[in-house]
């Protein structure tokens, strides 16, 4: 399903890490929310989006509790 090459994924990931740091701790949620909206529009597939939304939800034992409480 994934079309990323390993190198591309790693580069994109590093850019994402740097962008989160650059946003600053007080603005990182806003930054990530904007990123999600843009990716949602790019995805353009309601069914897929619902499935991804469910996967990203933090259930007990799945997501990191620390991230969930922050």
């Amino acid at each position: 399903m994934s079309v990323w090459s390993r190198d591309e994924r790693e580069r994109a990931y590093t850019n994402l890490c740097d962008a989160v740091t650059a946003a600053g701790e007080d603005k990182e949620s806003l930054f990530l929310a904007r990123l999600c909206l843009l990716l949602m529009e790019e995805l353009g597939d309601a069914e897929k989006f619902e499935a991804i939304l469910a996967q990203a939800q933090l259930q007990s034992g799945k997501g990191l509790s620390r991230s969930a409480s922050e």
């Binding site: 990931y13 994402l16 890490c17 740097d18 962008a19 989160v20 740091t21 650059a22 946003a23 701790e25 990182e28 933090l58 799945k62 997501g63 990191l64 620390r66 991230s67």
Partner: peptide
């Protein structure tokens, strides 16, 4: 911070 937050997301 970015590397830490993303790392935690990857692990989850």
């Amino acid at each position: 911070r970015g590397y830490e937050l993303m790392r935690d997301a990857v692990l989850s």
